[in-house]
């Protein structure tokens, strides 16, 4: 009681957020029991038939869902890789720029796409990648290539998705590297200078090792996204022609569960994704904490 007397204002401050979390985060978690049911909205959770692990068995037996899992992992892993390498490289090159004004100009330009939604960028991409006289295909044709079906051919679709995602995010992703680069002790470079090291040698032996720890942290934390291939992007770019190579877990869940009404199965797929992602996140934070003493909360 004395605890409450002293601390009630602190509890009261969290309370509103807590209520929202209960309603919109924890209540849906209770709904995952649908994953173990042949759920019928008409009958509700109480009336629907329990089917044990059948929905999960379907997930691994159906050819389409296995293909979807594979698509998800391929797209997500390639994105993780290039979204680490591209910002890293970009940050190192930008760090060599001595003119502050030019540096700021470049930063302003490359951070921008991150803040535009995939609806806007999807609309732009549909327009410029169109085979019917789209901007990019016109350029390609003028040098004798194409037209390329960027969004109509499965393999090109994957390439388009990965390239456009890296294009959108590399600038923003570089911020954390640029911050680390700015924190390198200048005395290191001065000493190397005295010893006659070239700039390339300085980059290889001072710059890159100095930002390695943060690179490991960023790379490790990204592991939680191995099943996150980017719903917003895929949903706004894909079409029936590329389902075989471009359909991912999240878009599959939407089509099967919300549009198709197969809610038990869709819940099971969602649960499969959530559990694996959660395990990966815990493992990656554990590793980041051990190796780099990184802590978020």
């Amino acid at each position: 009681m004395t605890h409450l007397k002293k601390y009630w204002p602190l509890h009261l401050m969290v309370l509103p957020s807590l209520l929202f979390l209960i309603a919109f985060s924890y209540l849906p978690m209770a709904g995952i029991v649908m994953a173990f049911q042949d759920f019928k909205p008409r009958l509700g959770i109480g009336g629907s038939k329990w089917v044990g692990l059948d929905n999960f068995r379907f997930l691994f037996e159906r050819e389409d869902s296995m293909q979807v899992i594979w698509n998800t992992v391929v797209i997500a892993v390639l994105k993780l890789f290039f979204n680490l390498v591209a910002p890293f490289t970009f940050a190192i090159f930008l760090n060599e720029v001595r003119k502050d004004l030019f540096k700021r100009y470049v930063q302003t330009m490359v951070y921008l796409p991150h803040f535009l939604s995939w609806v806007i960028l999807g609309g732009i991409l549909l327009n410029v990648l169109s085979t019917d006289g789209g901007f990019i295909n016109r350029i390609l044709e003028s040098i004798g290539i194409g037209p390329i079906f960027f969004l109509g051919d499965g393999n090109w679709f994957r390439v388009t998705v990965i390239v456009s995602d890296v294009w959108k995010e590399f600038g923003y992703g570089a911020i954390v590297f640029l911050a680390a680069l700015a924190n390198i002790n200048p005395a290191l470079y001065e000493a190397a200078e005295v010893d006659g090291a070239s700039r390339l040698k300085q980059t290889l032996h001072i710059t890159i090792p100095s930002i390695m720890p943060i690179t490991i942290v960023v790379g490790t934390l990204a592991l939680g996204n191995v099943l996150n291939a980017g719903f917003d992007q895929i949903f706004n770019l894909y079409n029936g022609l590329v389902y075989d190579k471009g359909d991912i877990l999240d878009t599959f869940v939407y089509r099967i569960g919300i549009l198709g009404g197969n809610m038990g199965f869709a819940t099971a797929i969602g649960l499969f994704k959530s559990v694996i992602s959660m395990v990966l996140i815990f493992v990656s934070y554990r590793i980041a904490y051990k190796w780099a003493n990184y802590r978020i909360f």
Partner: peptide, 22 residues
């Protein structure tokens, strides 16, 4: 306990369909 409630809600979710039902 509060921080665990926040963190857990960040790393785990019920998925699209249960959310839709709620």
């Amino acid at each position: 306990i509060y921080s665990w409630i926040f963190v857990f809600a960040m790393v785990f979710n019920g998925g699209l369909v249960p959310f839709y039902m709620v």
